[in-house]
Design a protein around this nucleic acid. Structure first.
Lengths: 229, 229
DNA sequence: AGTCAGCGTTAAAAAAAGTTAAGCTCTCAA
DNA sequence: TTGAGAGCTTAACTTTTTTTAACGCTGACT
């Protein structure tokens, strides 16, 4: 039984939001609907998602700002924008953030689905056919906070798991130090920073059995999980 | 014989409250009417409900605050708001809490029913066709405080049952430690916290026969009932 | 080359959670 | 009336998780 693709949907128009949620659920997706950017970002920090659909115009936090924050924590997650106005600037700004596509309202449900599938098809998910996630030779189960390497299992603590999860989402790219601190510790002060360094050391130990894995520091920027193959 | 869907209805307008109660009862629902948010929350802590209908404007505790408290204890229960004013802010706040729908007064009874059915249809109840609740392979009867696994039956105590019930309502999500303490012990002081830890240990023992079930701790946050399948 | 903030690592301290059992308080039946 | 048992709390001790501290190293900038 393969796991459902989970979608974070941020849409302030209740009717459209519900409509999309129902439609996507009927298509076998696991959908979480948030009615503004702020709430959506909170949810994003709480659990894992595979796909983002953000309305551009929203109260509290607009779709672009939301996307920017999300991108700091996950360089790879597909983001699709919904925009009411066929405004060129909007489109541009969206794509410069790293949007994967956009739809101008009104759009048909089927069109949305088609675009989503197109993105999902071309995005090389880190997961394999069985929906398993591997870091090099090490199997990683974020939900269960487990690492597996040839029969051996290591249980990660909450903080270890949160940090590794972020690193994996930014595999081979830089995970911004401050962004990670805000996401995991809620505050990027000095002490939390030192705490994070301790956890980086712990993770390096936990991953040292695969010599192709490296957590590299980028001075003054953050950390980068590198997996050679 | 299938069990009735139980509704917690919070409405301060006596006339409307009674009207709704009668209507919903005539439609085969089991309805409990509370005349303000505080009372509604007390009732919520006393027994199990399948559905919430909250008026937004209420004395003592408004519908949104009530919903927030309810959500801390049950991430999945459907909540439908009744709002007198067609005020955008109200709607937004409601949905950011995780409302499933809202109705603006005045509304027709039939419309309420239609919306409720729409929500109930799409909400994937944890219960199976026979209305039985399973945690992995273990059958759980909250009302009778019983656990069943291949012929074996285990009777839970009041506290064990309350705690397990909360965990089940938040299956695969974090049950907030403080919120659980306030709901079950009424106060989240140190000693009650230690007491809860003892009960977590008891529940882990009670559930250990199914190795796919795990009560995981999320340090400083709470507990998470994880069921693999 | 010198300085200094940023990072690496280890160890200690502190906080949170796990476990076991003793003790208290009810209830209910003898 | 009483005492046995159930249920819950409290206590004591252990383990786990997280933070803080200490000291050494590194890279950027002067």
């Amino acid at each position: 039984m393969e796991n459902k693709t989970s979608i974070l949907l941020a849409e302030d128009d209740i009717n459209l939001g519900q409509l999309l949620q129902n439609f996507l659920r009927s298509k076998g997706f696991d959908v979480l609907l948030a009615s503004n950017g702020k709430m959506a970002f909170e949810r994003f920090n709480e659990r894992d998602f595979d796909f983002c659909i953000f309305d551009v115009m929203m109260p509290e936090m607009d779709g672009f700002t939301l996307a920017k924050e999300v991108r700091e924590l996950d360089k790879k997650i597909p983001i699709l924008f919904l925009t009411a106005k066929a405004m060129e600037n909007d489109k541009l700004e969206g794509f410069s953030i790293g949007a994967d596509d956009y739809l101008t309202k009104p759009f048909s449900m089927e069109e949305l689905l088609a675009r989503m599938n197109a993105i999902l098809r071309r995005v090389d998910s880190d997961k394999n056919e069985e929906g398993e996630l591997f870091i090099g030779k090490i199997k990683y189960e974020p939900e269960l906070r487990l690492l597996h390497l040839n029969g051996d299992t290591k249980k990660l603590t909450t903080k270890e798991n949160q940090l590794l999860s972020l690193l994996v989402k930014n595999q081979n790219e830089i995970l911004d130090r401050q962004a990670a601190l805000r996401a995991i510790w809620g505050d990027d002060n000095y002490f939390n920073g030192r705490s994070m360094d301790v956890y980086i050391a712990k993770l390096r130990k936990a991953l040292k059995d695969d010599e192709n894995i490296e957590i590299m520091n980028v001075h003054g920027k953050g950390f980068k999980l590198i997996v050679k193959d």
